[in-house]
């Protein structure tokens, strides 16, 4: 039986992420998921972009691809089409996936490319010093919104659903068991799957918004999310929570099947 240890480049640890950063939790969940599914390391590509989450490839024993900022899904589309037998798992932060890479996300979901996209959403650009991202909640303090973020945020999960993804879910690093389950479902899903994981950035977002240290931030995340079913019954002001759960899980032909069908 495979162990998560087989997927982790131990000699590369400790990783570069800050104390209390949730990226390590997501990395562990990924290695556990791959072990549980018994996917051989040489049949996995971990593809990432730029920013804190972009470094994830430095810590795995699988194939690794780190592209340019925001373009991960476009690179991954090429990798997948050339090597469909390999699982391509894309890890992109909120800035990576929703800002500079937003268009690629829409089109990867629309084509329903058989990729797994994990979006660790730490609500800001950590690597560059805590600037706001499209997914930063409005009124948040960041290093580029000292008076509070003027822009609204958007729901990247609903975007992926509308665009055509086969599987979309959201959870947090607080909900480790749920994260594990969703991750395995996402990896197994044929077609485009997206898992958004809310994760603490105590160094910037937590500090700027007085949310406390890592443990307090996790508690804050736990208080800030509610199950999807309950969220759907809410309206108006109450809907300021994040929902968590499985937003869509549906069957649709993936991009390569369509290409081969047309070819």
């Amino acid at each position: 039986m495979a162990s998560y240890r087989d997927y982790l480049a131990w000699e590369r640890l400790p990783h570069l992420w800050c104390a209390g950063c949730g990226h390590g939790v997501i990395l562990k969940a990924l290695t556990l998921a791959l072990a549980a599914l018994e996917v051989p390391p040489d049949k996995v590509v971990v593809a990432s972009g730029i920013g804190c989450s972009g470094r994830i490839g430095d810590y795995v024993t699988t194939h690794r691809f780190q592209g340019t900022h925001g373009r991960t899904l476009a690179f991954a589309t090429g990798i997948h089409l050339a090597r469909p037998e390999v699982k391509v798992i894309c890890v992109m932060g909120d800035g990576d996936a929703a800002a500079i890479g937003g268009n690629h996300l829409i089109h990867a979901a629309r084509r329903n490319v058989d990729l797994t996209a994990i979006v660790p959403n730490n609500l800001n650009y950590g690597m560059t010093g805590g600037q706001f991202s499209p997914l930063t909640p409005p009124a948040s303090i960041s290093s580029t919104s000292r008076q509070g973020k003027a822009e609204p945020a958007f729901d990247i999960c609903h975007l992926a659903v509308v665009a055509g993804a086969s599987y979309v879910a959201r959870t947090t690093v607080y909900h480790v068991t749920e994260m594990q389950k969703f991750l395995q479902e996402a990896i197994l899903k044929k077609g485009f799957s997206l898992l958004e994981v809310l994760t603490p950035c105590p160094t910037y977002y937590g500090r700027y918004n007085a949310l406390g240290e890592a443990a307090q931030m996790l508690e804050w995340l736990n208080r800030s999310v509610i199950p999807l079913a309950r969220y759907r019954q809410m309206s108006g002001d109450e809907a300021r929570y994040w929902w968590r759960g499985r937003l869509v899980d549906r069957e649709a032909p993936d991009f390569l099947s369509r290409l081969k069908g047309a070819g």
């Binding site: 400790p14 104390a19 209390g20 990226h23 562990k28 690093v173 594990q180 996790l218």
Partner: peptide
């Protein structure tokens, strides 16, 4: 095992 799952640093 919650400590194991939650620890970000292995």
């Amino acid at each position: 095992q919650l400590c194991f799952y939650r620890c970000p640093d292995f």
